[in-house]
Nucleic acid binder design. Structure first.
Length: 656
DNA sequence: TACACACCTG
DNA sequence: CAGGTGTGTA
């Protein structure tokens, strides 16, 4: 029943999320699917567009000094809660002062650089094919926070005073604001160019695919095309497609013929199982994969070469200009992304390379998206305290369109990437300063993903293993995305088979509302957990432990009150500044990122008085003297806000 | 018998 | 916080 409640919330948010969506990037993520070793259409297309639009690394990697000194960057509380929400970075407004707007641009630019530089770092490090296992092991062993911290440590170490290049000095001389605005604009242009290139590539592929389709897959692809056009639509150059598609079809089919009989990769086989792709289609997919890997690799190399040809220290400066203080998930994102890109280095398998490059490009696209104000993750307190009944309207269109057959895996993936990923991105890009209109969209995409996964789970009750769940619940969004995507590809919805620290944290906060939650209620509030006897017992045990601590404290403070010769139990009140409250808050709400409800204070006061009265009356001589108290307190449970059912809750708890 | 709970312990 | 144990309940 609560599941249905969640569903409704989801539906709302997703449709809202779409409203702003004039998105196009969906194409990008499909790079995961297509690659080919031959350098042909795609590379031509890339190089053509690049040549035409001029991929000036200066745009992608503007000098850091134009924005901030390293010290400034270090001190800037960039990602702190409550960072002023402003218009999208893509909506240019004149900058006239050093205010929040200025800071916003700085942060925005730093975020962009950080991501691009992470790509470069990954590419420029020496290949280490064996590092994968090691890294993964480290990934498992080392908490995200730790890795993030280490990453920041490294940043600090590398952050050395840098000399300003003449170019930079000149820019700075012209004034910070105008220079930054210009940089921002240029960055945006560059990214738009890249995005358009990718869209075109996808269009090409789809056209060819459509051309060759069987009736069955044709249907799916039409759907896909429709979606694509809907998202990318306006900005796509239709005439250009028409002019080139025939030629590209021919070339691609030639490649396909040459690839006939090639061994189908494991990945393909999986997809084949799900999507019933013909061998032709699989071959085609493989061809595209290889091709994309090659082309993207070349593009990255080209950019890197240009960057590296800059005066020495330039890259280091860029690198050092990365934001450091960032108690935000996106910093963790970055840390992990940086790591995951690094682990996929040239020399790895083509599939790995494709993955890494896809990730890299995703990052590149994310440059303009990550700083949308609406996606700042607020500590749960602000949200809960502000409006404890605020349940983010979450939905994942995938749910709505879940009738999609598994055989249409490709189009399903497209929908997924559009709705789950790109739609979020589009929201970020299209976000307006009108905060109110964004309320329903106020959802980190990782949360959307978690949500969507569970929604799928509700339709396909299969299970996810604990490790996968952990990756989704605790790893940064982008990391989760990879797992998610893999999940989609495997056709495996997930549900945690184990309780995570995030669940524990959530349970503790729930204790503020309910001391004696039934197992039924717990199931309702932990919909992402696959309940079994063990899980239920564990959760119940948790609350039992919570109660134990709670009652111990109550008894302790009651006895203390008696020792202090308090005569009237009416004088016993648990207020927010009382020692007892601090103790409890420290236990259940470490970090104090949740505003404890007043009702809990009332219940605590009552409990304290009950213990006080009982002890003072000498009832504690009875071995079961606490039982009546327990009975009283057990009736004081209040409803737990619905927001605890939402995955955003868990997400934020994890991030805070 | 299964479950929830409190209590004790590490 | 989890494991073990004893008790009460359905």
């Amino acid at each position: 029943m609560n599941g249905s409640c969640v569903s409704e919330q989801d539906v709302d948010s997703s449709s809202s999320g779409h409203s702003g969506g004039k998105k196009e990037e969906p194409c990008l993520q499909r790079y995961l699917l297509f690659s080919s070793p031959s350098v042909s259409i795609i590379s031509q297309l890339l190089s053509q567009t690049t040549a035409n639009r001029g991929l000036d690394p200066n745009f992608l990697f503007p000098s850091p000094q134009t924005t901030e000194s390293p010290q400034e960057a270090r001190d800037c509380p960039s990602f702190k809660e409550g960072t002023p929400t402003l218009a999208s970075p893509l909506c240019y407004t004149p900058i006239s002062s050093f205010g929040d707007t200025d800071q916003f641009y700085n942060e925005h630019l730093r975020a962009k650089r950080a991501r691009v530089e992470s790509i470069i770092r990954g590419m420029s490090l020496s290949p280490n094919p064996t590092a994968l296992g090691t890294n993964e092991a480290r990934d498992r062993e080392c908490p995200v926070e730790k890795r993030s911290e280490n990453y920041r440590e490294n940043k600090r170490k590398q952050k050395l005073p840098q000399q300003q290049s003449p170019h930079v000095a000149q820019l700075a001389g012209r004034g910070r604001n105008s220079a930054k605005a210009e940089e921002c604009r240029q960055l945006k242009e560059q990214l738009q160019v890249l995005q358009q290139q990718l869209r075109q590539l996808q269009e090409k592929f789809l056209q060819v695919y459509e051309f060759s389709d069987s009736d069955q897959s044709h249907k799916g692809m039409e759907k896909t095309m429709h979606l694509l056009k809907g998202k990318c639509g306006d900005s796509l150059d239709e005439s250009h497609q028409a002019a080139t598609s025939d030629q590209h079809r021919t070339l691609l089919w030639r490649s396909i013929s040459e690839m006939e009989g090639h061994k189908v990769s494991e990945e393909e086989r999986r997809m084949g199982d799900l999507g019933e792709l013909s061998s032709e289609e699989r071959t085609f997919s493989e061809t595209l994969k290889h091709e994309l890997a090659t082309v993207v690799s070349q593009a990255v190399d080209m950019v890197l070469k240009k960057v590296l040809s800059k005066p020495s220290g330039h890259l280091a400066q860029l690198y050092n200009s990365l934001p450091i203080s960032a108690p935000d998930s996106r910093r963790e994102d970055f840390a992990t992304e940086e790591y995951s890109i690094r682990k996929w280095l040239p020399g790895a398998s083509s599939q790995n390379l494709v993955n890494s490059l896809t990730e890299a490009h995703t990052e590149a696209l994310s440059l303009v998206m990550d700083k949308c104000p609406d996606f700042h993750v607020h500590p749960i307190s602000s949200r809960m305290a502000r409006k404890s009944c605020h349940v983010p309207n979450m939905n994942h269109p995938l749910v709505v369109t879940s009738q999609v057959q598994e055989k249409e895996i490709l189009s399903q993936l497209l929908e997924y990437s559009q709705n789950g990923h790109w739609n979020s991105s589009s929201h970020r890009i299209a976000c307006s300063p009108d905060r109110s209109s964004q309320e329903s969209l106020d959802l980190p995409w990782s949360a959307v993903k978690l949500k969507s996964s569970v929604m799928r789970h509700q339709q396909y009750p299969m299970s996810f293993n604990t490790a996968e769940m952990e990756s989704l619940a605790f790893l940064p969004a982008r990391k989760a995305e990879c797992g998610e995507l893999q999940t989609v590809m495997d056709g495996m919805p997930f549900s945690s088979e184990a309780l995570t620290p995030g669940h524990l944290k959530k349970a503790k906060l729930m204790f503020f509302f309910a001391r004696y939650p039934s197992s039924t209620l717990l199931k309702t509030y932990f919909p992402d957990v696959q309940f079994n006897r063990c899980i239920s017992s564990q959760l119940i045990k948790w609350f039992s432990n919570f109660r134990e601590f709670y009652y111990i404290q109550m008894e302790k403070f009651a006895r203390q009150a008696i020792l202090e010769e308090v005569t009237d139990s009416k004088h016993l009140m648990v207020s927010r500044d009382s020692e007892l409250f601090r103790t409890l808050n420290m236990h259940y709400n470490k970090g104090n990122d949740f505003e404890v409800p007043d009702r809990f204070l009332e219940v605590a006061s009552m409990t304290l008085r009950e213990f006080f009265s009982a002890v003072r009356a000498g009832k504690d001589s009875d071995p079961s003297w606490k039982k009546p108290i327990y009975k009283i307190i057990s009736k004081l449970d209040s409803d737990i806000p619905d927001m605890f059912k939402s995955f955003r809750c868990l997400q934020e708890l994890v991030q805070s």
